[in-house]
Design a protein around this nucleic acid. Structure first.
Length: 506
RNA sequence: AGACUUGUUGUGUAAUGGUAGCACAUCAGAUUUUGGUUCUGAUAGUUAAGGUUCGAAUCCUUACAAGUCUACCA
């Protein structure tokens, strides 16, 4: 790994920062599920901790009781473990409410913070230290209503950077916090809490995504006034990297929550989403996701990536490990005329990944996939027709000679089989008529918003399909390769979830 | 509109001021009982203009483009 973040850290080391003091943190707010964008942040933080043999805190940034919940804390912990990362310590911003309150009073005394209040829709500021301290205490003690009083930092009301225009440090929220319960009714804002929490935890490099770059000056401004050499002599640095954007995929908690609110999806582990929980449920291996993140790298440039890249990554790996079975989505009947009527020929398949005892029956009447037959001559079509020889997987070569139609629809095709024939361009899957079994496949696409915030409605469907007799030997929670179709995860008896289709359609 | 940040083949990402490389995609060929996989090869790039320098993707200036912010969210 080589990127601008490592260079910055190495530069700090060259300038005298002890390697032993380097420390990182990953700070999600427990207000939703982590998605693929978060994996980018998780990977860089945990990987850097590994490289520098540094500590890394998992910090729950819980400064707004409105959307936060203990269940999200649990899910986030599970997600990070599932990805294969281990934190040094779990911390909560809410554990620092006391010290943040103390530091806020310090800022008031330094005339760097003041109370703003709203009376009869007019806004007033207080500049007297004693008055400020008094009202700040009243705010804390629950004497005022929400939206009536706030504590602001006194920086520069005319700054061209909006974040420096006397930003809010505390607001009143009269809602039960999942950890501090009703103890606090004033809550620090992100800007006031974040850098200070980094300083408390002795974080040296605070990595975040690019949208916080405008906060960088404010981050440093606060630290300047709370800095205490005896408490901690190293100031943390905020480093921003570009966020991950993926075509036709939702990568923002806000949009995910809209889907829940509008009842478009029921849960945040819906297979159409790119949350870590959905990846887990779909049978993805976390290694492949990490590999994808590794490959896209880190920079400050705006980037937009195709989700295809993740899927190709997965395909190349699982093709080596997933056993093959034959499945038909749209079967069409084939009668092999020169094959004995009552004969059942049992085919033993010896080598098929980790599959044991794979035996399939071949009979006179079989089914193949509808798209694998073409009535008219086409020089670019290599599968079954009256003009082509085609091989049935694990079995004989066949060629069509008669097509039976009913109301212009093909209902069956008569073929002859051949035992030996040289160059065959294509091999197709099939299932014996008497031995086909029904399965259901959950097929889906990533859900995304089109223009005007309309989502793609046809993002999920159930396909009824047929599988050969090997279904009896399949193991739950494993990925199988449907011959020439794609890769599917067996999540319940006779029920599969799509992982990825073979790419080319022909 | 302003402030901040960023501009490297189609996409993503490298290159102490010193040979512009890598991965994926695309195209071609080989292998193949999956039109898949694998293997080999090819195509293609420093946003523009000026400056500093023996030498600039890298430093400076200007223009242009993109992204972020302008919440009592994080």
């Amino acid at each position: 790994m080589n990127n601008f973040i490592i260079k910055k850290i190495n530069k700090d080391i060259n300038n005298g920062l002890s390697i032993k003091k380097i420390k990182f943190r990953f700070p999600p707010e427990p207000n939703g599920y982590l998605h693929i964008g978060h994996i980018k942040a998780i990977y860089i933080n945990f990987k850097l901790a590994e490289i520098y043999k540094a500590k890394i805190n998992l910090r729950f940034d819980d400064t707004n009781p409105y959307n936060e919940h203990i269940n999200f804390v649990k899910e986030i912990k599970n997600n990070i473990k599932w990805l294969g990362f281990r934190w040094s310590k779990i911390t909560y911003t809410s554990d620092y409410f006391n010290i943040l309150y103390k530091w806020a009073k310090k800022l008031i005394k330094k005339k760097k913070a003041y109370i703003e209040y709203n009376k009869n829709n007019k806004i007033y500021n207080l500049y007297n230290i004693k008055e400020n301290l008094y009202h700040f205490k009243q705010m804390k003690d629950g004497k005022y209503k929400e939206n009536s009083y706030v504590l602001r930092a006194k920086i520069d009301i005319n700054s061209p950077n909006y974040h420096l225009r006397n930003p809010i440090m505390y607001r009143i929220i009269k809602k039960k916090h999942y950890r501090t319960k009703n103890k606090w009714c004033i809550f620090p804002t992100y800007d006031w809490a974040h850098g200070q929490s980094d300083y408390i935890e002795k974080i040296t490099h605070s990595l975040c995504s690019i949208e916080f770059q405008n906060h960088n000056k404010l981050y440093n401004w606060f630290l300047k006034y709370i800095y205490n050499k005896k408490y901690n002599n190293i100031l943390p640095k905020q480093i921003e990297f570009s966020r991950l954007n993926i075509y036709d995929t939702i990568t923002s908690k806000r949009h995910l929550n809209i889907l829940i609110k509008k009842k478009i999806i029921k849960k945040l582990d819906d297979p159409r989403l790119s949350t870590i929980s959905s990846f887990k449920k779909k049978g993805y291996n976390p290694k492949y996701i990490i590999n994808f993140i590794k490959n896209i790298g880190y920079s400050k440039r705006y980037n937009k990536i195709s989700i295809n890249k993740l899927e190709l990554e997965i395909k190349k790996k699982i093709i080596k490990t997933s056993p093959k079975v034959m499945v038909l989505f749209n079967p069409i009947k084939i009668i092999i005329n020169n094959f004995p009527k009552k004969l059942i020929e049992w085919i033993y398949i010896k080598k098929n990944k980790n599959f044991k005892k794979q035996i399939i029956p071949f009979t006179r009447e079989i089914y193949i996939e509808k798209n694998d037959f073409k009535e008219k001559y086409d020089k670019n079509f290599f599968r079954l027709s009256s003009y082509n020889y085609v091989r049935l997987k694990y079995s004989y070569i066949i060629k069509a000679y008669k097509i039976i139609k009913k109301k212009k629809k093909i209902i069956k095709i008569f073929c002859n089989f051949f035992k030996k024939k040289k160059k065959i361009k294509s091999t197709i899957q099939w299932i014996s008529k008497k031995y086909k079994k029904k399965i259901k496949i959950l097929d889906y696409n990533y859900i995304f918003f089109k223009k005007k915030k309309i989502y793609n409605k046809k993002s999920i469907k159930i396909i009824k399909a047929y599988i050969d007799l090997t279904i009896n030997n399949l193991k739950l929670k494993k990925i199988y390769q449907f011959h020439r179709i794609g890769f599917f995860y067996l999540f319940k008896k006779n029920k599969f979830k799509k992982i990825i289709y073979m790419k080319k359609k022909y």
